[in-house]
C-alpha cells in the first residue's frame, strides 16, 4: 500500500463562527489586550467574466476551426512568425497571413505535474514549443501521444504533426501536436 502523505491538504475554507471572543468591559487593560489579538481572516469571493477580443489575431483562431495553421510574415524580409503578430518586430509594418506547415519539430518541452488552478485537473500535461520549416519563431502548444513518465531530452527534435479539435473552443488549445 502506498504511504499516505504526512500532511493534510489545506484549503482556505474554515468554520463559520457566530460571535468572536471580545472583552465584556473595555477597561484600559482590555483595550491593551486587543493589541495581542489574533488576526481575523475572512473569505472574499471574486469572479469576473471578461469579453476578450482576439482582435487582429482573430483569423488565426478561425483558421484552427478549419484545420488550418496560420502564421504572419513580414512582407519585405519574409521573416515569419509562428505565433500571430499584427505588426513586424523588425520592419514595423503590418504583417501578412501565411499558411504554416502542419508538421514541425519539438524545440523545447516540459511535463507539468502541477500548474495553475485552472489546469490542475489536467496534470500531468506536456507543454512544448514547436518549430516549423520556414518559420523564424515558435508556437507554444500541448504535446500528446507521449508518456509523461518517460520524459527525455530525445523528445527535442522529434517530428510532430498538428491535430485539431473537431469542436473548436476558440482557444489556442484547439490545435495540439502528436508524434508524426
Amino acid at each position: 500500500m502506498a504511504r499516505q502523505p504526512n500532511k493534510r491538504e489545506e484549503t482556505l475554507g474554515g468554520t463559520i463562527v457566530h460571535g468572536l471572543p471580545f472583552p465584556t468591559e473595555l477597561t484600559p487593560e482590555a483595550l491593551e489586550w486587543l493589541r495581542a489579538m489574533q488576526p481575523i481572516r475572512i473569505e472574499q469571493e471574486y469572479s469576473i467574466t471578461y469579453l476578450h477580443s482576439y482582435a487582429q489575431d482573430s483569423p488565426w483562431f478561425a483558421g484552427l476551426t478549419n484545420r488550418v495553421l496560420l502564421g504572419n510574415r513580414e512582407r519585405e524580409s519574409g521573416y515569419t512568425y509562428a505565433t500571430p503578430r499584427g505588426h513586424g518586430m523588425y520592419d514595423g509594418q503590418e504583417t501578412e497571413w501565411v499558411e504554416l506547415p502542419q508538421e514541425g519539430r519539438v524545440h523545447a518541452f516540459t511535463v507539468c505535474y502541477f500548474g495553475s488552478e485552472e489546469f490542475l485537473a489536467e496534470t500531468p500535461f506536456v507543454l512544448a514549443l514547436i518549430e516549423f520549416e520556414g518559420a523564424d519563431t515558435l508556437l507554444l502548444s500541448r504535446l500528446l501521444g507521449v508518456d509523461p513518465e518517460q520524459a527525455s531530452l530525445d523528445w527535442i527534435g522529434m517530428k510532430v504533426k498538428a491535430r485539431f479539435l473537431r469542436n473548436a473552443k476558440l482557444k489556442p488549445t484547439d490545435v495540439y501536436f502528436v508524434p508524426a
Binding site: 516540459t110 507543454l127 527535442i156 489556442p172
Partner: peptide, 22 residues
C-alpha cells in the same frame, strides 16, 4: 500572453522548465 500562452497551460515553472530542457 492571455491569448496565446496562458490558455495552453499557463504555469511559470513550466515555462522555465522548457528553457532548461533546451
Amino acid at each position: 500572453d492571455v491569448s496565446f500562452d496562458y490558455p495552453v497551460g499557463g504555469f511559470y515553472s513550466g515555462y522555465y522548465a522548457m528553457m532548461v530542457t533546451r
